[in-house]
Computed example of a mutant assay.
Amino acid sequence: YECEKPWIPWLLPTIVLANIIIFVLMMYTNNCPKNNKGSKGKCVARYLGRFSFQPTKENPLFGPSSNTMDKWGALQWSKVVHGKQGWRFITCLWLHGGLIHLFANVFSFVFIGIRHEQQFGYVRVGVIYLLSGFGGGILSSLFMQHTTTVGASGALFGLIGAMCSEFLTNWTIYTYKVTAVITFISIIVLNLAVGVLPHIDNFANIGGFFTGFLLGFVLLFRPQSGWIKPQHRPAGAAVIPKYKPYQYVFCVIAVLLLIVGFGMGLLLVFKGANGNKHCSWCHHLTCAPTSKWPCGY
């Protein structure tokens, strides 16, 4: 089909810049030298003054304290459910647990998100980003009920999930299929590996991925290979349908699953359901306990 003119990406670069600025401001308010009580060690990189990091035993990601993240709007189940602070589903997307977390997300945004925006525009990418982050927050709230979590990883994984479903739906128009698959796997492995550290939420990653995967079937399917706009079609040329039947089927199924998933998820969250009661090992997916840091299950 005829290639569309690439969009000029501005939304995701702006989000990346905003995340960096917010992290700097959060570290400024954290002020480890003043607020650290010393029970878990000394501040890291004290030469940075109030921008120095919490002791690695408390936060191995080189970032602020849990208390600071909470003040800035981190996701915390008790405050969402009992404190009626549903806005934390959104604010947590703009926060990061530390430099390692921030750099991993920025790297992924550059290699995944900006390409998405170039191809599909800021509206569709923005919708996927926000809804995936929200979907990740819902799954997180069902499993992470005693910890404070932050990060745009759920939204980022939503973009990865959307990219995967878009790849499956539009398989016939891709040239470098192996390269695309390797890129997907590399980004997913990197972010899941970072996700086993404290304050990073792999449940949000998983929830965001599946939300984005379904949204990709709805928002990112493209005309099949060989389709030509009617005004450009040569006389007597065979008429090729713009979309294949399976693309419509996937779209309808995805919409239904999204409606059911969001509805049931929110209902369970505000009823106080705890997913760990039905999965005794699931908490290990989001934090690997070591002698260097606690997980706070």
Rank of each mutant, 00 (worst) to 15 (best):
T172P: 07
Q119K: 09
L75N: 02
E117Y: 01
W87E: 14
R46A: 08
I187R: 15
I240H: 10
S39K: 15
I112P: 00
I185C: 08
Y1K: 03
L159T: 04
I200S: 02
G161V: 02
I114G: 00
F157L: 15
E117T: 08
I188W: 13
L25A: 02
N67Q: 15
P241M: 13
Y297H: 04
H101D: 09
L95E: 06
A45S: 09
F53S: 10
F53W: 12
L267K: 10
V249G: 04
L192E: 13
H278G: 05
G98Q: 14
A155S: 06
T149Q: 12
N276Q: 15
A204E: 02
K84S: 07
K271M: 03
T56A: 08
Q224C: 05
H199S: 05
A74G: 07
R124I: 06
G226W: 12
K37A: 13
N202D: 11
V255Q: 09
F184R: 05
I90E: 05
I138V: 14
L25S: 05
V24K: 02
F23N: 05
M26H: 04
M27I: 15
G216E: 09
Y176V: 10
W293E: 03
T14D: 00
L215D: 03
A180P: 12
A238T: 10
V44M: 13
S141P: 03
L220G: 00
R50E: 13
W94S: 07
C287S: 07
E4S: 10
N36A: 02
F89P: 02
F107N: 08
F203R: 05
R233A: 00
A204W: 06
F262K: 00
I187G: 00
C287D: 05
I160V: 06
F250H: 05
C164F: 11
F103Q: 11
F23S: 02
I240W: 05
C287R: 04
R124N: 08
W227M: 05
R88H: 06
L285M: 11
V178K: 15
P60G: 04
T68C: 07
H283F: 09
M26N: 12
I200N: 05
N30E: 11
Y297Q: 06
L256C: 10
K277Q: 15
L267G: 02
N276F: 15
N30A: 14
G83W: 07
I240A: 06
G236R: 00
L99C: 10
L12C: 12
I8D: 03
G98R: 14
S66V: 06
R233E: 01
G236H: 01
K34C: 04
K42I: 11
G272P: 03
N30P: 11
Y297M: 09
L258M: 10
G41Q: 15
I185H: 08
F217K: 11
I188G: 09
A74E: 12
C164Q: 10
F103H: 13
I173N: 11
A288C: 14
R124W: 04
V255F: 03
V110H: 04
W72M: 01
L95Y: 03
K71A: 12
L12V: 15
